[in-house]
Amino acid sequence: MASIYQRPGSRYWMARFKNPSGEWEARSTKETNPAAARKLAFLWEGAAESMAGEGTTAAQVDKVVRGVWERYTGKRIEQTPTRIFFNAWLEGVKAKKAAKTAVRYGAPVRDFLEHLGPRADADIKSITGSEVQSFIDAEAKIGKSGTTVSLNAKVLRAVFNSAVRKGVIERNPLGLVEVPEAVHEERSPFTTGEVDILLTSTKGTEWETAILLGAYAGMRIGDATHMKWEGIDLAKQVLRFRPEKTKAKKRELEIPLHPRLAAHLEAIAGKANDGAAYVCPTLATQEVSGRVGLSEQFNVVMKTAGLSKEIVVNEKLGGRNFSKKSFHSLRHAFLSGLANSGVAEDVRHKLGGHTNSKVAARYAHLSTETLRKAVDTLPGKGGSE
């Protein structure tokens, strides 16, 4: 039986009734009078019951529900086409986030709208959880990993949450959607010996500089290759930069220069004509990704140095190959080195630019010796205490 209720802080009554599929549905009546809201709830349920049966589409249900409301109140319900809202949300992302993030968010938005077909131009209020579930299932069926599908669902959830906050829809249809578990395959850190091998192999090249920035400042490949001299203060022995990944947060990191990195930068500083110049001018002109991008070039650097990418096949990632070693392993080496040296967690977070402890934990890579020292602090040595 249909019923009504109020959400905390809202003056309007919500109607709860069963849709033609027999599932409970909640809609705002836009009524402040409980008697009027209750009547509308029963009208909606009656209309839904009359449509029960196979072949009833979400669009038909929404049309009938809107028709009942408009006849009862004498007002029209404003509609917001799903495609228009999603694209407007994406434009907002482009204005606030880094370009790469906007591209990453754009893919699931485009794919979801394509999956909806003609329904992409329907009112966003009519999009159901089953339609979203259908998209998620289709993504998994074509072989996308649980991590990718989970990230795509996260993007859709963000769009619908935005619609809820703006009052365009009452609830997020992803509430009951089942999403595959995200699986994070971790990189392995380079050992100190491996870093030395890389530096010896690239001595005198821009890759030597980039590798030092990764190993001793924890910089990602894009940040290392786009570092400018204006961000390096040799007098104060610090470097400052704004990570591209979190650029939208406008958080600048200040990293004290490690003696090995400082000596290298001092040795090549004379080559810089002005502060706006890149420390790695040739690498800075190239894309990070792609078949000939910097990431692939670093794979060649490793191969030339005689180091393996340590490729593994992860069944949880759909049986895909995964390289345990990449340029990002230098960042792992930097942060795990700090952890194994006993540097406090909050300091490691600060140096790594992390605000999420869960993410930061993936970079710890505590060594057996560090763990052994921790165990050795326990009482009871010698078996007599």
Rank of each mutant, 00 (worst) to 15 (best):
M1D: 15
R7C: 07
P8A: 05
P8Y: 14
G9R: 07
R11A: 12
R11Q: 13
Y12H: 09
A15Q: 08
K18E: 07
A26I: 13
P34F: 04
R38A: 12
R38F: 11
F42T: 07
G46I: 01
A48V: 13
D62V: 06
K63L: 15
K63I: 01
R71P: 01
K75S: 15
R76Q: 15
R76H: 14
T82H: 09
N87H: 12
K96S: 15
A98V: 11
A99K: 12
V103Y: 12
A107F: 12
P108I: 00
P108M: 10
F112L: 11
F112G: 02
L113N: 06
E114I: 11
H115K: 04
G117C: 08
A122P: 00
D123C: 12
D123W: 09
T128G: 04
S134M: 00
D137K: 01
A140Y: 13
I142Q: 14
S145A: 06
S145R: 03
N152F: 13
K154W: 05
A158R: 07
N161G: 14
S162W: 03
R165T: 14
K166R: 15
V168A: 05
G175S: 01
E178G: 00
P180Q: 08
V183H: 11
V183P: 06
F190A: 08
F190G: 09
T191G: 06
T191S: 15
E194H: 07
L198Y: 00
L199C: 12
T200E: 13
E206M: 01
W207Q: 10
I211Y: 09
L212M: 13
A217Y: 11
A224M: 02
M227T: 09
W229Y: 02
W229N: 01
I232M: 02
R240W: 02
L253G: 08
I255H: 12
I255R: 09
P256L: 03
P259T: 04
A263Y: 05
A263M: 03
L265V: 02
E266H: 08
E266Q: 11
A267E: 14
G270F: 08
A272M: 05
A272L: 06
A272P: 06
A272N: 04
D274Y: 08
V279A: 12
C280M: 05
T282L: 12
L283F: 00
Q286M: 11
E287Q: 07
S289P: 14
R291N: 13
S295F: 01
F298H: 02
N299K: 14
A305W: 08
L307A: 05
L307Y: 06
N314V: 15
L317P: 04
L317K: 00
G318F: 00
R320H: 08
N321M: 01
S323D: 03
F327N: 05
A339F: 05
N340E: 07
N340F: 00
A344L: 10
V347L: 11
L351V: 14
G352P: 08
G352R: 02
T355E: 09
K358P: 10
V359A: 06
A360P: 15
A364R: 06
T370K: 02
T370I: 09
A374P: 05
V375E: 03
G383V: 10
E385C: 07
